[in-house]
Nucleic acid binder design. Structure first.
Lengths: 345, 345
DNA sequence: AATGATCGTCGAAGCGCTTCGACGAAGCGG
DNA sequence: CCGCTTCGTCGAAGCGCTTCGACGATCATT
């Protein structure tokens, strides 16, 4: 393994000159630069990442802090992660996947932050009141959130525009002529835990429905096919004449579809279904393919990383706060409702 | 940010003593150890990861090299990744997600390996003839594969036992009375590219079927719902009396199911379906839930990391070569075939 | 009682790089 | 032609840690 010393000797310059060629922090004459470059090539020189990190106090490593509970990541979260990894790699940073146990072990987080291994950090699955944010800020680690806390003052974040998403989804259904629309959200527990997307979509749904002069009915569902089935049963009980279901729960949606079929209700003829914040791949899995609000997917991870890097690589202290829309993609699961409500037939 | 120097001064010992307390590489008296520990606590000392890495020539960072093509990761691969991240974190290592563009940019890989940022590397999506393996070995980076090359001499790997998986799946169907079984594999292109799982399952399928005295029919399918639909159409054309479909393609399977339904064939009454190397979550999405060979999921990532760390932390040079079985989980998509083949009715 | 071995600690020499101050050589206006 | 800045390069001082050799002190061995 060649070191900078070897390159310097071969090129007959000093070590610092080699460093300046590498980093460009001081002007170097073309002739010298060429000599150094040649030596590097000849020796197949690669700078040692650790040494560089120690001396420059910049590791060029970014942390992606993601909660790692039992059921892994959904398609949408996976897209964030891969998008972030690709973006980091594109700008010459490494991305460390750091599973921070959901069970708020702040101490671990503090330790991690103090090791100075990460130049900056992207925090996923942020709750409305998230103590991790404060812990990271105290440790002085540049931070970008995917999602956002209740009070976003002084924070950088990228999040989905849930207001827009729900509004468009509801508008689509109402435009088709639906009046009795049920919203299947995440579980009740998730709501009480203060999970932003669940709360924000709930509020947006109420606003959107009342805006159309309709009654908002929300049913919570566990994140599983069984949860979806149960939720649909509950929905039919609460709103017997329902003609459309709006779902936020990428996992439960398949249970919902299954239960509809099991009850002899056809999609979209009897009941229209819109899946929100969903990846096209998942939407295509269903039969019929789901009309969905397509999540920004990997773009979100990319934007978060780019904002973080911009913040690190200089610029001012300006915060990056951005909401990304979900795009309505109409597939086969929505249609004009039957004149007679399904339970009346 | 307190340094070791500060701790040493406060504890009134030398810097090296502090280091020995931390690493345990030399005996330290209980009294001294206590003094040092107290000083560390008081100063809230955290060792600097870069400095440690430079001096010890061990970064405690592991690389997870995953190909990042357009369509992200499937549920099974995601489970590998999260399992690996959790395992790494559990043994005090960091896991860097390194998307190496599928388009064999060996140079990038070599550069990465030479930076000495990774103590070791897990390589995913290994092809039968994979030049990346040689590149990494030349760079002297300890290596564990998820998947395996054709010639595994001297390599450590963890892979799925495709032989067992196919055998059990076929045995299950044959046991139910099925005779005309079609195997839907990955795409033809994937096969020619030398993707191990596709090739190994193909061979295993031929062996298993002929072993039962049956004719093996294999159909390739693109990794998409549309690909699955097309594959099922092709399968019905090639084997009109088919009563069972075996699928390896987590994405295409939903297209297969959709097309079956569209043709008025019911699952499992007319056609039984077994999905191979599938996560329970995905199997549960379908209606009826899929009988599947459940992939080892996160265990595989964990085992790979553990093997790598064992290799790093000492032990000998013994290679870790392990095949993990998939477990047959019978759900609702398989049943005894109808007496009359579906197309005959 | 003399001889090693072992224990507990220290000081110093790096690990491979960045960066600061310095300094000769040009280039410039007056 | 003198002093001034700018350019291009060098040497040296770290960055915060590990690790090696050394050295009293303690302890078991003959």
């Amino acid at each position: 393994m060649a070191t900078m010393h070897d390159v310097a000797r071969l090129a007959q310059v000093s070590v610092s000159t080699v460093s300046y060629v590498l980093t460009g922090t001081r002007p170097i004459s073309p002739a010298t630069r060429a000599k150094v470059r040649a030596a590097m090539t000849e020796l197949d020189y690669q700078p040692n990442a650790m040494a560089r990190g120690l001396a420059s106090r910049r590791s060029r490593i970014l942390g992606l802090l993601l909660p790692m509970d039992e059921r892994g990541l959904g398609a949408t979260e996976t897209a964030f992660v891969t998008g972030a990894a690709a973006a980091a790699s594109a700008v010459g940073y490494h991305l460390v996947l750091s599973p921070v146990g959901g069970g708020g072990d702040l101490a671990d987080l503090r330790r991690l932050a103090s090791q100075r291994m990460f130049d900056g950090v992207v925090l996923m699955e942020v709750k409305l009141a998230d103590e991790r944010v404060a812990a990271l800020q105290e440790a002085g680690v540049p931070l970008v959130l995917i999602g956002r806390t209740g009070d976003t003052a002084g924070l950088s974040y990228v999040d989905i525009d849930f207001g827009q998403t729900v509004r468009e989804a509801v508008a689509h259904l109402v435009g088709l002529g639906h009046r009795r629309i049920v919203y299947v959200n995440h579980s009740a527990q998730t709501l009480t835990r203060g999970y932003g997307p669940a709360l924000r979509t709930r509020d947006a749904f109420v606003t959107a429905m009342t805006g159309h002069g309709l009654e908002p009915v929300m049913i919570p569902a566990e994140d599983s096919a069984a949860g979806g089935r149960a939720a649909l049963a509950a929905a039919l009980a609460r709103a017997p004449g329902l003609t459309a279901v709006l779902a936020m729960n990428e996992t439960a949606i398949f249970g919902i579809l299954g239960e509809l079929t099991a009850r002899g209700l056809s999609v979209p003829d009897d009941v229209s279904v819109v899946s929100m914040v969903t990846s096209p791949q998942v939407a295509e899995l269903a039969t019929p393919a789901l009309t969905a609000m397509t999540s920004p997917g990997s773009a979100m991870g990319r934007i978060a990383i780019e904002a973080l890097v911009r913040h690190l690589d200089g610029a001012g202290d300006e915060r990056h706060q951005q909401l990304l829309p979900c795009a309505l993609e109409i597939r086969g699961s929505t249609a004009v409702p039957r004149s007679r409500p399904p339970t009346g037939g």
